[in-house]
Structures are given as structure tokens and as C-alpha cells.
Amino acid sequence: MNLFRLLGDLSHLASIFILLHKIQTTRSCRGISFKTQALYVTVFVARYLDLFYRYVSLYNSVMKLFFIASSVYILYLMKYKYRPTNDPSIDTFRIEYLLGPCVLLSLIFNYKFSVTEVLWSFSIFLESVAILPQLFMLQRTGEAETITTHYLAALGVYRALYIPNWIYRYITEDGVVDPIAVTAGLVQTGLYIDFFYVYFTKVLQGQKFELPA
């Protein structure tokens, strides 16, 4: 464990708490893509199946359980508790265009052709694009509540921090490198660049998140 990864994980945790806070204080999931949240459940379940047969550390297990439980809970909030505030008519990204290629990529690129390793690869590829329905929705509506942008920023920072983590590990752990996670991680971080530009130039200057018409 190094500082980059710890801060990255904490940023990931923070993003989930920000999202829960947004839903509970505004009593609304307006502006949140159900599809993106459903993809995250898929990602966590596919990746953390190893909870059943591999113990890494208490930290590792607790985080995995938290990510699965909180993502399922968010789906529950969107689908049941705050259902009337969820508007599927603006959440129109076609996720089959993400799922198909991710299945294909995971069958080609994996560390071992076994069920759990292919699922792990699949989860890595899917996570890298899971934010697209959310960003697409943002693009469509052209604006976002400030708290929603903080959620997205924390999520983007989490991924961005994994990059120095990999560089650090490569240097300190005798050339250890995980090309699948690194490639997907670079793509995932890249998807946030446009968002970050608006976030830093507008939201952090106290303005509303609004995209140019």
C-alpha cells in the first residue's frame, strides 16, 4: 500500500458518501444516471467474487464489501425510495454498446482463461467506461447540481490517483506492472478530462456547472 493508492481509495469512498449525501439531503436522485450506478454494481460483483476464496487483508475485504453494499443500496434508493425523482427518459445511453465490447475484450485480454480471471478483466474494462451514461446525461441536460459535480470529481480523482500508484509500484516492486488495469485506467481517467476542465474553471470558482450551449 502506498499513499497514492490509499488516497485514491479514500477518494472513491468519499465519492460514494457524497452521492448518498446528495440523494438523502435533496431527497432526490435527479441528475444521477441509474445506468451508470447499475454498471458499478456489475463491476463490483464481478471483480470482488474473490472475497469467497482469497483473503488479502482486513482493509481489502472491508472495502470490497462496502463497495458492493453501497452500490446496491444506491440502486435501491433510485429504484424504490426515490423512484419518482428518477427520470429514465434522459438516461438514454445504450449500455449494450459498452457491455458487448467489454465481454469481448475480457475474453481476449486476461491473465488466465478462467471464469474468475475473465470476470476480473471484464470488470476492469467495464469500470473504465461505466461513467459514460452519467457523462452523457450531463451533456444532454447541460447542467448539474454542484453536489453531483463533487461526486464526479471525487470519482475522477480516485482513478487519476491510481496512475501514480502504478508508477510507484513499478519502481519500488521490481517492475511489477498490470497492463490490463493500466490501459483501462488511463482510458477511464481520460474520460474525465472534459469534466475536470469545467469543474476546475467553473464549480471551484463558485459558479454553477453549466456546459456551453
Binding site: N60, Y111, D178, I180, A181
Partner: peptide, 10 residues
Amino acid sequence: KSAERPKDEL
């Protein structure tokens, strides 16, 4: 070096 991924990352 065999292709192995670090198993400790989230």
C-alpha cells in the same frame, strides 16, 4: 516473468 496481476488492488 509470468503474467500475473497484483491481487491487492481494489
